[in-house]
Simulated assay, not measured.
Amino acid sequence: MTLPFIAPMLATSGTLPPVAQDARWAYETKQDGQRAVVYLPGDGSVMLRARSGEDITAAYPELRPLGDALGGTPAVLDGEVLALDDEGRADFQLLQPRMGLVQAPARAARLAAKTPVHLVLFDVMHLAGRSLTALPYTRRRVGLERLGLEGPFWSTPSALVGHGREALEATRAHGLEGLVCKRLDSAYEPGVRSRAWIKIRNMRTADVLVGGWQPGRGRLTGLPGAVLVGQRAAGRALRYVGSVGTGWSEAERAGLAELLRAAATDACPFDPEPSAPGAHWVLPRLVGEVRFSTRTRAGLLRQPSWLRLRTDLTPEESAADLPDTPA
Rank of each mutant, 00 (worst) to 15 (best):
V192W: 01
M125Y: 03
L63T: 01
A20L: 07
R172D: 03
Q96K: 12
P136W: 13
R261W: 09
M1T: 10
A267S: 15
S186F: 06
V180Q: 09
V244H: 01
D86Y: 07
L259R: 15
R193T: 12
W25L: 10
Q31Y: 14
F92P: 15
G67Y: 07
L220T: 08
L176H: 14
R236C: 14
V76A: 05
L259D: 11
R139T: 13
R24W: 11
R310M: 07
R165V: 14
S158M: 14
G222I: 13
A75C: 11
A254V: 10
Q303N: 13
V210I: 15
R302G: 07
R217I: 02
T138H: 12
S155A: 13
L286D: 00
L66R: 01
P272T: 06
E54W: 05
V227Y: 01
P4F: 10
M1W: 06
A196C: 10
R297L: 11
L66P: 06
L238D: 05
R24H: 10
L228M: 08
R204W: 05
P277L: 01
M99I: 08
L84E: 14
Y188P: 06
G33H: 01
H126C: 06
D85G: 11
D271M: 08
K182M: 11
P224W: 13
A90C: 06
E54V: 02
R51Q: 12
V117Q: 01
L135V: 03
T12E: 13
S194V: 09
V117F: 01
P315I: 02
R139F: 05
A36K: 00
E252T: 13
V180I: 15
D32N: 07
G247I: 03
Q303I: 07
G72P: 03
A206E: 12
Q214V: 15
W281N: 04
Q93V: 09
P304I: 04
L95I: 12
L119W: 04
T29R: 12
S186L: 03
P323I: 04
L70N: 09
P277M: 02
L63S: 01
M9K: 04
R291P: 00
L220K: 15
P18Y: 03
Y240G: 05
V208Y: 00
G225S: 11
L135T: 03
V192F: 04
I198F: 02
R98L: 05
T205S: 15
E145A: 14
A90M: 03
T133D: 02
S275I: 10
P152R: 13
V244S: 00
F292P: 00
V282K: 00
D43G: 10
P97Q: 03
P74T: 12
T12W: 05
P65R: 08
A108V: 12
G278F: 12
L48F: 06
R51T: 07
K199G: 08
V192E: 02
T133H: 13
G44P: 05
P304Y: 00
D78W: 03
P269Y: 12
A263V: 01
W197H: 11
M125F: 02
T205N: 15
P74D: 14
R261N: 14
P65W: 04
P18K: 04
R51V: 02
Y240F: 14
T156D: 01
R110C: 00
P315S: 09
A167I: 10
V287S: 06
Q303T: 11
A254H: 07
